[in-house]
C-alpha cells in the first residue's frame, strides 16, 4: 500500500509539472497573440503616423519631411516587413521610440514603472485586508451588522475611482490636512491613492468572499467543528476563512491587471507620477509606440499574475493537486 501511494504521489507531481509547463506555454502564446493584435490594431488605424511625429495636423510639414520620417521609421515598408521588424525588436526588449517624446519607449516605461507597481501591489494587499476583515467582522452576525456589511460592499464596489479619489482628497487632504494633496513620494502620499484603488476592489473581493463564507458556515463540517467544542471565532478563522478566500484568489489575477489600468485614473486625480500619466498622454496624442509598450507591459503583468494566482490556488486548495 505505501508503495502505491508514493507512486501516486510521484505521478501527481509529474502531472503537475506537465500542467505547469502547459500553462507557461499558454502564457507565451497569449503574449505573442497580444503583441500581434496590438501591432495590427495600431497599423490599421486611420491617419498618418508621420504627421503625428512631426507635431500633428497643425504643423503643416512638407512632403519631403514626411517622406524622411517614413523612411526613418520604416513606414514605407510593407506591413509584413514592419511586423517582422517589430517582433524582432520586441524579442530583444526594444519597444521602439516615442513619436512625441522622441525617447526610447523602454526607457520611459522603466522610469515610470516603479511608482505604479508600488501603488497597485499596496492596493491589492490593502483591499484583501479590508475584504477579509470586513467579512470576518460582519458576515453572519446579527441581522443589522450583516446587512450593513453586505450593503457597504455593494455600495463601495460600484464607486467610480475618480470620484472616490476626489472625495478622499477633499476630506482628508483639504479639510483635515492629514495627507499631502498632490504627488508626495513618501508613504504619506501613497495612502490616499492606494485607498482609492483598494476600496472598490475590496467591495468586489468582499462580495465573493462573503458569499462563500456564508455558504461555508452552513456546511456540515462547520457543524462538526462546533460539536467538538469549537467556538465561533475558531470556526470563522480556522475553518471558514480558508475556504472563503478561494474564489477571491481566482479573482486576484484579474484584479491586479485591472488595478494596473485603473491606476491611470487615480494617478490623474492625485497628479502622481507613473505609467498612468504616460498612457493618458500617449493615448490623447496618439503616441502609438508608447501605447503599445504600456499595453504590452500590462498584458504581461496580467498574464503573469494569473499564472501566479494558479500556483497560489494550488497551495491554498490541495484538492486541485490530485484532481485533473
Amino acid at each position: 500500500m505505501p508503495s502505491l501511494s508514493t507512486k501516486v504521489g510521484l505521478w501527481t507531481r509529474h502531472r503537475m509539472l506537465r500542467r505547469l509547463v502547459g500553462r507557461v506555454a499558454g502564457v507565451v502564446g497569449v503574449l505573442f497573440a497580444v503583441s500581434t493584435l496590438t501591432f495590427l490594431a495600431a497599423h490599421l488605424m486611420p491617419g498618418d503616423p508621420a504627421l503625428t511625429i512631426l507635431g500633428g495636423a497643425g504643423s503643416h510639414p512638407t512632403r519631403v519631411e514626411l517622406l524622411a520620417i517614413d523612411r526613418q521609421y520604416g513606414f514605407d515598408k510593407s506591413l509584413v516587413v514592419q511586423y517582422v521588424t517589430f517582433t524582432g525588436h520586441l524579442l530583444l526588449g526594444n519597444l521602439g521610440t516615442s513619436y512625441i517624446l522622441k525617447e526610447r519607449v523602454s526607457t520611459i516605461i522603466a522610469q515610470q514603472m516603479g511608482p505604479t507597481f508600488v501603488l497597485t501591489i499596496v492596493s491589492l494587499v490593502l483591499s484583501w485586508v479590508l475584504a477579509v476583515g470586513g467579512t470576518l467582522l460582519t458576515a453572519r452576525r446579527n441581522r443589522y451588522t450583516s446587512a450593513f456589511g453586505s450593503g457597504a460592499e455593494i455600495f463601495v464596489a460600484g464607486l467610480p475611482q475618480y470620484w472616490l479619489g476626489i472625495i478622499l482628497m477633499v476630506v482628508f487632504a483639504f479639510r483635515l490636512r492629514w495627507f499631502p494633496v498632490e504627488g508626495g513620494t513618501g508613504v504619506a502620499g501613497l495612502v490616499l491613492p492606494a485607498l482609492t484603488l483598494a476600496i472598490p476592489l475590496a467591495g468586489f473581493i468582499g462580495q465573493v468572499t462573503r458569499d462563500e463564507f456564508s455558504s461555508v458556515m452552513e456546511q456540515p463540517f462547520v457543524l462538526s467543528a462546533r460539536t467538538r467544542g469549537m467556538g465561533d471565532t475558531g470556526v470563522r478563522v480556522r475553518h471558514a476563512l480558508r475556504h472563503s478566500i478561494l474564489p477571491g484568489i481566482t479573482l486576484s489575477g484579474w484584479a491586479l491587471g485591472s488595478l494596473f489600468s485603473t491606476a491611470v485614473i487615480v494617478e490623474a486625480v492625485f497628479a502622481r507620477q507613473g505609467l498612468g500619466q504616460v498612457l493618458v498622454n500617449a493615448v490623447s496624442q496618439r503616441d502609438i509606440p508608447v501605447v503599445i509598450g504600456v499595453t504590452l507591459l500590462v498584458a504581461v503583468v496580467y498574464v503573469v499574475a494569473n499564472l501566479l494566482v494558479d500556483l497560489v490556488y494550488l497551495v491554498a486548495d490541495p484538492r486541485l493537486r490530485s484532481a485533473g
Binding site: L37, L44, G257, S261, V291
Partner: peptide, 18 residues
C-alpha cells in the same frame, strides 16, 4: 487574448487608435 487587456485598457487602446 482579449482578457490580457484588463479593465479599461482595451478601451484606452481603442481610443488611442480611433
Amino acid at each position: 487574448v482579449l482578457f490580457a487587456f484588463p479593465g479599461l485598457l482595451l478601451a484606452f487602446l481603442f481610443v488611442a487608435i480611433f
